[in-house]
């Protein structure tokens, strides 16, 4: 039904445009007063005004989006380095929004102010070294600041130092799902290669490697709060990307090689569910779901695939749970070790 409606609207729209075309054609034929360059002072006035109007519309819409859609953006970071990244984000965004708010009005404002008219003549002005130096210099200085701040943050994120030994977890990607492998009591992952994949040994773990035996393979990713986690990423077939947006983590999983990323989750799932932003978001989403007759949703962290990998790329996900240490230990005890699995 709605399809039909939209098609009708589209056809009507097309007809309307067709009519408008005719009217324009006729009216410009009647006027026939176009001068040589084809734009009149009146055109300049109208278009200048429209450009100014556009500026207000644009900024109005921008303000509306910032306010109205603030709630759809990701909630506060759930990891330590994520908080650093969020600070950098806020400051960089601040800088670019200011630049945006200065330059667009200049552009549209000048377009309006200096709209042409037959009696005026433009001012001849080729260049102005002082002015040019100024607007080369100012961005350069601001950028230097952003670069320094950005690089410091980056090196902090990528070369973490910790007092605590990180928990080693392998994240394994394949079309179209994820599995995790914990290093077990020795905190050492056993050797693995896709050539060894067979039957229940879906990750190709080498059973002859003694480090393998206590490894734990799971279909859900549990992490203890406040402990560094060192992720090792592998892929079985094509490139995937492990994206954990709530933790501000993203790393490609590349067949034939290993990548890694280390971070410290600092909010349990339960704590995150109580964050006011999250409570609010869940409420909105559940209203939407109720209206569609869908089951209510409870917030969970999630690992999603963020590198195009085939037909079900859009649905390649794994649930992530951040526990307290005790909860984590308890959960871990319930899991089978690789030796038991075999």
């Amino acid at each position: 039904m709605e399809t039909l409606l939209i098609i009708v609207v589209a056809i009507l729209g097309a007809l309307a445009i067709g009519q408008a075309v005719r009217v324009f054609e006729l009216s410009s034929a009647i006027k026939g007063s176009d001068d040589d360059v084809n734009v009149t002072d009146k055109d300049n006035r109208t278009q200048g005004l429209l450009l100014l109007l556009f500026l207000f519309l644009f900024f109005g819409a921008f303000a509306w989006m910032v306010i109205e859609w603030d709630s759809v953006t990701l909630p506060v970071a759930a990891s330590l380095h994520g908080l650093e990244i969020d600070n950098l984000w806020a400051i960089s965004m601040g800088v670019i929004v200011v630049a945006f708010l200065i330059t667009q009005p200049l552009l549209f404002g000048f377009s309006y102010l200096f709209r042409g008219n037959k009696k005026r003549k433009a001012v001849y002005m080729e260049h102005n070294n002082k002015l040019e130096l100024f607007w080369t210099g100012v961005p350069a200085v601001v950028l230097a600041g952003l670069i320094l701040y950005g690089l410091t943050t980056w090196s902090g994120v990528m070369n973490p130092t910790n007092e605590q030994e990180p928990l080693v977890v392998e994240v394994y990607a394949k079309q179209f799902g994820w599995q995790a492998r914990y290093a077990g009591g020795d905190n050492k992952l056993g050797y693995a290669n896709v050539r060894l994949v067979e039957g229940v040994n879906t990750l190709g773990v080498d059973a002859d490697d003694i480090n393998s035996l206590d490894d734990v393979i799971t279909n859900e990713l549990h992490l203890p709060k406040d402990r560094p986690v060192l992720f090792k990423f592998r892929s079985q077939d094509v490139i995937h990307s492990a994206f954990l947006p709530h933790f501000r983590v993203q790393m490609n999983c590349v067949p034939g090689s290993k990548t890694q990323f280390q971070f410290i989750p600092n909010k349990t799932t339960a704590e995150m569910r109580n964050e006011p932003e999250v409570v609010e978001k869940v409420k909105t989403i559940n209203e939407i779901r109720a209206a569609k007759g869908e089951d209510p949703w409870e917030f969970d962290y999630v690992l999603m695939c963020n590198k195009i990998c085939g037909s079900a790329h859009y649905n390649m996900q794994m649930k992530v749970v951040v526990d307290t240490q005790e909860e984590f230990d308890k959960w871990m005890k319930e899991q089978k070790s690789f030796a038991e699995l075999l």
Partner: peptide
């Protein structure tokens, strides 16, 4: 932007 400044813009 500066090119527009004090021009006689034909829109």
């Amino acid at each position: 932007i500066t090119t527009l400044w004090k021009g006689n813009l034909r829109l």
